[in-house]
Design a binder for these strands. Structure first.
Lengths: 134, 134
DNA sequence: CATTAGTTCTATAATGTATAGAACAGATAA
DNA sequence: TTATCTGTTCTATACATTATAGAACTAATG
């Protein structure tokens, strides 16, 4: 199964679809150029309406991560090796990051634990091989 | 001004109120035991309905960060020095963290830049002084 | 030309958000 | 006691979002 969804959760289905695909891209399971399932097919697989999948794909297109074509279908447009992100996006993302990390600090998580969780998450991602490693 | 709000933004007002207070707690500007403005007063200051503020406060109460009393008002219940967070909360938070960091990786941000942003955010927080520092 | 797959349109039901007003329940102070 | 302050609960309305449903359209491919 490419995607797993919680239909009765608090987060909207189209948002879950978007999130799972973003994670798949970050982990290298969907590199730039790879194809995603057609809207209608994925909708059947997940047991949801095809408009819901369309909304998730369209979100990814707005974020620059997907290219949608008539017959070409949904193709990944960006991944970890596609160059630096848009400055406007970075500013927005930083704000969301600070809110999320602030929540951890307020809940009593230590600074070292927070950093450890961040590094553990990053360890699962597929970054392009750097020229100078040694 | 204790709080600033974007009324026409995509994120709900009650969520913004919750987020700003979480950040204030993490930064030590609202330590455990400190009082927040009364619901009706903050509503006037922000120019929103008092039910909206109530919803934000109630969210923080559900998260264990606020204690709400009849006359005592809204008082911060937890901060960075109140001990380790709930395991169930940690699991949920880790999932949200991974999604957010995956977005950065998919957008082309490097691993070192991501870690740097995390550490920059944490640098603004007020963690309790550790016994062994040297 | 037929097929495929995304796109656009209307429509409906359910849920979430924000506002509004009223009343209630404790706790404190005059 | 009485008045005041504070969170709490209730109904109600208006608007936006979410999810479903069906139909038709557009462009590219075989």
């Amino acid at each position: 199964m490419l995607l797993s969804i919680e239909p009765d959760g608090p987060v909207p289905i189209y948002q879950q679809i978007r999130d799972r695909i973003v994670e798949a891209i970050a982990r290298g399971r969907q590199p730039a150029g790879s194809a995603l399932p057609p809207i209608r097919q994925l909708a059947v697989d997940l047991g949801v309406n095809f408009h819901t999948v369309n909304k998730g794909y369209d979100l990814l297109r707005q974020e620059g991560l997907l290219r949608l074509g008539r017959k070409s279908g949904a193709v990944v447009r960006r991944d970890a090796g596609s160059g630096p992100p848009d400055p406007g996006w970075t500013q927005d993302w930083t704000g969301r990051l600070r809110t999320l990390l602030a929540e951890a600090a307020a809940q009593g998580m230590s600074a070292t634990d927070i950093v450890a969780e961040c590094e553990a998450a990053i360890a699962d991602f597929a970054f392009p091989a750097v020229a100078a490693e040694a």
